[in-house]
Amino acid sequence: MAQQKLFKGITPYFFVAPAVFVLAFTCLYPVMKGFELSFYDWKLGTPMASRQYVGWENFAWAWRDPALFNSIRVTLIFTACAVTAELFLGLALAFLLEKGMRGIAILRTAFIIPIMIAPVVVGLIWRYLFDANFGLINYLVQLVGFEPKIWLGTPGLALPAIIITDIWQWTPFMFILFLAGLQSLPRDPVEAAEVDGATTWQVIRQVKLPLLAPVIWVAIILRVIDAFRSLETMFIMTFGGPARETEVLSLNIYKTAFLSQRLGLASVNAIFLLAFILLLSLGFLMIARPALAKK
């Protein structure tokens, strides 16, 4: 009997084990190696055996490196602006298209096209749209009577251009999550509110939004983590320029590893990125948990 109980206790672990092993090997192992590497000076193209132990030197360098702090600042601004805009636009679209109307199926399909395009391609498309000489955006701007701009090469314009690109690509993601959430909401509270004479706005604010809260939190967490790691669009559109204005943390890590050839220092910067994402995720989970519990 006891043996059977023990067996029952072990069974789930037995089934989960392969997944845990695979995850440990593909995720945990590289992360541990990254930590190890952060104490070494190792250049790309030289044998690993020739790397040198430098103790905390890489951390000290990173701490005094204005480029790293600049990239953290850029990443924070980028993430905050992009995700906020995507959140509100996604919500607005979801509420607008929640009720059936003519041609809604086509609209919904059209809205999700951007998510399906590879970020590199999105970067290329928008790089041409924002092009100073041949870009559609400058053409439209001139049509309305404004001066054409060098969007991707002017301080103060490049980051907004990249944020707009991100909003274009990822608002649909928010929209789909919210739409699915709205459609799975229980009808009773909404109907009850309507019977009580609540206006549409009141229904949205007092009934639907609170019910939708868990979905909203999940969407925000996913998007924030994703935005923090984003690299491709900046890589293609500006490569971090003008100067370092659009150099997000991932791009800084790439440049440190591949341009500067300092794999140890790049590992330190990667640890910063990991720590940031971990903290953010934990924070969001803490805030979101009560909402999740309610459900």
Partner: peptide, 10 residues
């Protein structure tokens, strides 16, 4: 750059 084609910075 000032007298050159627009967008040199890119």
């Amino acid at each position: 750059v000032k007298t050159g084609p627009p967008g040199i910075s890119t």
